[in-house]
Design a protein around this nucleic acid. Structure first.
Lengths: 151, 151
DNA sequence: CTCTAATAGTTTAACATCGAATCTTTTGCA
DNA sequence: TGCAAAAGATTCGATGTTAAACTATTAGAG
């Protein structure tokens, strides 16, 4: 996009950066998802299980906020995980509007089994950059992501 | 994810970087897509039109490669753009397997109208980073994306 | 030349994704 | 206290997305 667009230099630089950011994230994500397909999990399913694995039971809204997804989306993803017996829904007693999601023992076992491999696989992908480069990339992404989501 | 995972320091750094990259790209993309919804375009629809606008007629395979999407996906996206009369399919005469996609005059007019605003909007989002930071982010993303997609 | 392998697109099934509408429960305030 | 507004979740409709199976066409080896 950027390279074919005639416009102010500032704009070209920004578009160029945008395109590279989206593409890099896309490539990384796609690679990880392909690996997760071996255990019949999608990226969002893994993200959901991972949140529950490391943070304990969460409400649907909390999971949606963590993964930056809509509530309607989470309903569907949780349905699919529930069908496979990896998570369970439980209506909250204090606030009956809310639903607590927790891992079943199968869900927990699955994560215990696959999380280390997945984490290592992701790390391998990122190690195409040096540790120092990773720190810089992380910092820039953090700054940008924060600024965009706050405005 | 990274912050709750106990593991080698190298792995934590890599996971942390990965998460920030995905989130930043997600936030940026989501913001742009919300803006495009004003003209009833999705992100991929805009990407397709933009490629045709700046590069001229392309085959479906070429568009898919450019956008990093599957062929099946493009079939659907092009169907929707065709329904709206923004693009047209034309069977190639030299190679009858191939189909050339080109913008209709409406499609061209639409892009003429909306591309400058969209480009400016994207630039505004990226300008949460200084020009120098944009260059560095772009370079790191380029290096990472290239390395990942080549292995 | 002819058959086979490769290539370009489409179709299909399963899942993801959003936004808007809806339903239930809770909360705030008059 | 009673009711309107807000909040949590689901449903619905449209679109995106992939991988795998399938169709049509072309190209290449023998």
């Amino acid at each position: 996009m950027a390279t074919h667009h005639k416009g102010p230099v500032k704009e070209i630089r920004a578009l160029d950066c945008y395109i590279k950011l989206i593409r890099a994230a896309d490539s990384a994500m796609a690679k990880v998802c392909r690996r997760l397909a071996d255990v019949r999990l999608t990226g969002t399913q893994f993200g959901t299980l991972e949140a529950l694995y490391h943070l304990g039971p969460l409400s649907i809204g909390q999971i949606a906020a963590k993964l930056l997804k809509s509530g309607g989306n989470l309903t569907m993803v949780l349905d699919n995980l529930e069908k496979r017996g990896l998570i369970a829904r439980e209506r909250s007693t204090e606030d009956r509007r809310s639903i607590k999601i927790h891992l079943t023992s199968e869900g927990h076992q699955l994560m215990q089994h696959i999380f280390p491999h997945t984490a290592q696989f992701i790390a391998e992908q990122m190690e195409h950059l040096t540790p120092n480069e990773q720190d810089r990339l992380g910092a820039l992404c953090r700054k940008l992501g924060k600024a965009i989501s706050e405005t």
